[in-house]
Design a protein around this nucleic acid. Structure first.
Lengths: 349, 349
DNA sequence: CTGTTAGCGCATTCAT
DNA sequence: ATGAATGCGCTAACAG
């Protein structure tokens, strides 16, 4: 029924091994026979059996990409960049690798499950994006799983995620703390002293680092940080909206709101507008990430640009061994403060 | 080195066949032996070899999802929805299927390449999203490829894409024409008569259908359609910006601009603002898709909501055989006109 | 440069 | 309910 390599060999009048060599191209084959084989492949409309190939060679051409939410451009941009760099040797159409995108929803269990599934597939590499959940037990489980993946020959790269101890994984970490500090420094420079903070989900490295940067900036100037001015919530628009309503209730005197990311900031802006407050006239707003839509927000959003595409591309190249891993197995990727119109001098007393 | 099923069998003192049966669960096994096997699996930290399993069983648990651009939420939302519905039988963690997301960039060649790659992997199903390129030769190639995939047992579902002749593929098509017509009808109702149109890339079904809807609305009211008022470009922000600059140059008297999608509309808004024009005071703007950020645009964007998540989820279920295919192998998914603040009564004469 | 020979690890007949 | 045997389709030594 289905055409196999042996069929091709028969038609080209060569041995199966030769066909295999032609197809994989990592072995010298006479030009004439190659032609003959290729023609036979074409004639028979032959398609290599991936599983069989992977079984025999003990490696597959699948690359796993773990993301929290593929519908979020933050992850979509990184995933796309990784995928663009995992082309096979020679860049040939047939030699490409496939990206397996796994939506973890930020759940540690699903993360583990997907890693096991990728291990089962004998994935060539795995790229983990997004912040990690801060839980000792889970951290150990992940670390062990990553180690076993690496032992099995799967290259592991962390993109936008802090290093994992004892895991033999290359880490490209975003400087969330530095970015968070730069953002709040900017607001302090403008004269803000009562700044609300809409943080991401608790127990996340990203959340904690950004918040730490914020607090470090405040502490450096001796500005008091009221605990009630910080609210946690998921990384979505609704969370920004609701958190802002809550902040406005708790502390109507706030002159600025820093959001966990741009999406949250958009929700915050909506809530402020509905409350009849102008931005930045009454309240300044800042985001994080600089997603594509942020420059088109009205007013354009002050935020910290993270080079998502560049980081993803680099992670992809490292995962493919096409680029050397950074010294020490880790690199810090800096963000860049983008000052736009959503932040200004506070007008309230 | 690596633990195999045989190792597990030895430890559990059963035959490899029994272990296989326990793992797959599609065969009666005594509770006691099952326990023993499961314990052995745990003790040895055994992970099934996917390729070997796929080779022996002649099916894999990979599901392909073709998208134009995974960084675009339009596709990210659909991909995420598909992925959420392709859980394996029983919903068990270990029984899940993996989503292979393929970024085609809208290129027919890459589309074909990825389909071949998925065929090679013996994918359980393939979901194609996004509009198709309108080219006879390519259409035939795709059609043939899809047929062969279906013949090999891969279920094929088109999501947001018109049916493919002779391909035995279920199609969930968006009513782009109806949506386009509703949008332009809305503008005509408001009194607009000089409407610019920023269309998507040429030779795309999505582009053509939306444009046809626009023209049908104009024709129905006898409103002339100046060829110079339509500009084509990619589905991105920049295209919207540049096209709007061009439209403003060509026809300063336009009172409304309809964009190919929301992202393009955002670019159009930016260009209008820079030109000192107010929205909708001077020019009304409308988008398409109703992506999450559109409601937060200022002014909030009038657009056509496409139920991307619902369609993707349904495509996923159909791909898994968990939902019956629609009668005739195709269903039309309606959009919904969302009238918001970016459109209003024209002020110009 | 090419053919021959063995498995890769598992699912599935058949037996029992 | 379980075990033994066979082959899925391919790659990787090893010869020649």
């Amino acid at each position: 029924m289905t055409v196999t390599l042996a069929d091709v060999a028969a038609r080209a009048q060569v041995s199966p091994a030769t066909v295999s060599r032609v197809l994989n191209g990592n072995y010298p084959v006479a030009a004439a026979t190659r032609e003959r084989v290729l023609r036979a492949v074409d004639d028979l409309d032959y398609v290599l059996n991936g599983p069989a190939s992977a079984l025999a060679a003990a490696t597959s051409d699948l690359v796993g990409i773990l993301v929290n939410d593929i519908a979020d451009p933050f992850f979509g941009i990184m995933a796309g960049a990784v995928q663009s760099e995992i082309v096979g040797p020679g860049g040939r159409a047939g030699g490409e690798r496939l990206a397996v995108v796994c939506n973890t929803g930020g759940s540690p269990e699903r993360e583990l499950t997907y890693l096991t599934l990728l291990q089962r597939q004998r994935a060539a590499a795995v790229v983990l994006t997004g912040g990690a959940v801060e839980d000792a037990e889970h951290a150990k489980a992940i670390s062990g799983k990553l180690r076993r993946l690496a032992d099995a020959g799967t290259r592991v790269v962390l993109c936008g995620r802090p290093p994992v101890p004892d895991a033999d994984a290359v880490a490209l970490a975003f400087d969330n703390r530095g970015g968070g500090k730069a953002l709040t420094d900017h607001l302090l420079d403008l004269g803000h002293r009562r700044i609300g903070y809409i943080a991401g989900p608790e127990e996340r490295t990203t959340t904690r680092h950004r918040l730490e940067g914020h607090r470090a900036a405040l502490a450096a100037r001796g500005v008091p940080d009221d605990a009630g001015w910080t609210v946690h919530g998921p990384y979505d628009r609704r969370s920004g909206y609701e958190a802002t309503v809550e902040l406005l209730r708790r502390a109507p005197s706030l002159t600025a709101v820093v959001a966990a990311n741009d999406t949250v900031a958009l929700g915050a802006c909506a809530a402020l507008r509905e409350a009849g407050l102008s931005i930045p006239g009454d309240v300044s707003v800042a985001g994080f990430d600089d997603l594509p839509f942020s420059v088109d927000a009205v007013p354009a959003l002050t935020t910290v640009r993270l080079p998502l595409a560049e980081a993803g591309a680099r992670a992809g190249r490292i995962a493919m061994g096409r680029e050397a891993a950074p010294a020490g197995g880790m690199a810090v990727v800096q963000g860049e403060l983008m000052v736009r119109r959503s932040t200004g001098v506070p007008s309230k007393a």
